[in-house]
Amino acid sequence: MQLEIITPEKKIYSGDVTAVNLPGSDGSFGLLENHAPIISTLKVGTIKVFEKDNSEKSFDVKGGVIEMNNNKIIVLAE
């Protein structure tokens, strides 16, 4: 699935991933391929990205919004 993480300044990540863990406003949650469409707000925390080559990346955020639809995830982060 495709992930983009965008801040007001620039796009900080774009790539194919196998899973993403996000700091949702009502609690942390994860997304896997073929997840149902979802829109959620984010709180202060860390986004963990699991890439197809089994590597992991982390991005600290102060909040934001996430949308997933048709295996494409867009995160608008602060």
Rank of each mutant, 00 (worst) to 15 (best):
N54W: 15
Y13R: 02
K52N: 15
D60R: 06
E56I: 08
G45V: 03
K48F: 05
V17P: 00
V17R: 01
I12C: 03
N71R: 13
V65A: 15
N70H: 12
E56D: 07
I6G: 01
T18P: 08
I6C: 01
E51Q: 15
V20R: 00
L32E: 04
T18Y: 07
P8R: 13
I74V: 14
T7P: 05
I66W: 04
G30N: 12
N21W: 06
V61G: 02
V49R: 07
P37H: 12
L42W: 09
S55Y: 15
A19E: 05
L22D: 00
A19D: 07
Y13E: 01
N69T: 14
E33Y: 01
I6F: 01
V44F: 09
V61T: 05
S28P: 12
E67N: 11
I73R: 02
K11T: 03
G64F: 07
V44W: 11
V49H: 07
S25F: 14
L3T: 01
A19L: 05
N34P: 13
Q2V: 02
N21C: 08
P8Q: 10
K11Y: 02
T41L: 15
E56Y: 06
L3K: 00
T7A: 12
P23L: 06
S25T: 15
K52W: 14
Q2E: 04
H35M: 01
E67W: 06
D53F: 13
P37R: 12
V65S: 12
E56M: 10
F29C: 03
T41I: 15
D26G: 11
F59S: 02
V49F: 10
I38D: 00
P8L: 12
S14G: 07
I39V: 14
V49P: 07
E51V: 14
D26N: 10
L3D: 01
G24V: 06
S28C: 14
F59Q: 03
G15S: 05
Q2A: 05
K43L: 14
E4V: 04
E56S: 08
I73V: 14
I74M: 07
S28M: 12
D16A: 14
V75M: 06
V75G: 04
K11M: 01
G27F: 11
H35C: 02
S58E: 06
I74A: 07
A19Y: 03
N70P: 14
I12H: 01
E4A: 04
T7K: 06
K52E: 11
V49Q: 10
F59L: 02
D53Y: 13
V49A: 08
E9Y: 08
Y13H: 05
E4S: 03
I74K: 04
K11D: 01
L22C: 03
D26P: 14
E56T: 09
